[in-house]
């Protein structure tokens, strides 16, 4: 029975996210390649990275058309190669939780960045 509860807690922790969106613009080093900046993210990525694009399109973010920029920045002035937990918490404030009190370090421990589903599905 204990094992079952542990599994459960994992699920619960997966639903919750860390501490709010702090708009600190920390760069993660990597730069987005210099491209034709008159294009929107989707226009280019639907051709360049069709699989990722498809994952996004079928996700809840894709459903409401919240584009790449919402997690990755505009690519030119701000760029986050990987999404940050802080950004998740901005919109999903109802899911805020203190990670220190869970066994997890990031939203992305469980949620796939593009499909937004749990990894194990």
């Amino acid at each position: 029975m204990k094992k079952f509860y542990l599994a459960l807690l994992i699920i619960i922790a997966a639903v919750v996210v860390s501490y709010g969106f702090i708009g600190a613009q920390q760069s993660q080093g990597d730069k987005h390649p210099d491209v034709d900046w008159t294009l929107s993210c989707q226009e280019c990525h639907s051709e360049m990275t069709p699989e990722v694009y498809k994952d996004w399109e079928l996700s809840k973010h894709g459903d409401v058309d919240f584009g790449c920029y919402i997690c990755h920045g505009d690519g030119q002035e701000v760029f986050y190669p990987k999404g940050t937990d802080e950004r998740c918490g901005g919109c999903h404030a109802a899911q805020l939780v203190e990670f220190e009190k869970t066994k997890f370090n990031s939203c992305y421990d469980c949620h796939n960045g593009h499909t937004l589903k749990f990894h194990n599905e």
Partner: peptide
């Protein structure tokens, strides 16, 4: 420094666009 949805507000329950 940041924005987040107000989860106590019944209009959006924390969600933002």
């Amino acid at each position: 420094v940041g924005i987040r949805g107000d989860k106590e507000n019944t209009v959006n329950s924390g969600l933002l666009c």
